[in-house]
Design a binder for these strands. Sequence first.
DNA 1: CGTTTGACTGGCC
DNA 2: TGGCCAGCCAAAC
Length: 100
Amino acid sequence: MTLNLYQRIYEVVAQIPKGKVATYGQISKIVECNPRVVGYAMRNITEKMNLPWYRVINSRGKISFPLDSDAYFEQRSLLETEGVTFSEKNVISLDKFSFF
DNA sequence: CGTTTGACTGGCC
DNA sequence: TGGCCAGCCAAAC
């Protein structure tokens, strides 16, 4: 069967191991699409799909949600639980934690 | 159909 | 170091 763009993006997300992260840009290169579309696909993820959406961050090593939002807190908590650390400026070291 | 909208990026200032 | 900008393109309107 033919895999559509979103399905291919989700397959890549599913490959990110625990304790590692990937950027929207890295994923977009693998599936050959615009980075914005990766973000668009993320927004479409439901709880039932059981995907590690929180392991996806932006190219600056930061979470793409406002610092004071519930979504930010949730994503950050999930990552820290897996051992991903944040700097005092709320940045994740891509050298240490990037999967790709 | 034409327009608007992003969980983005790289580059410039 | 940090913020702004244009380009990007599938989806939603």
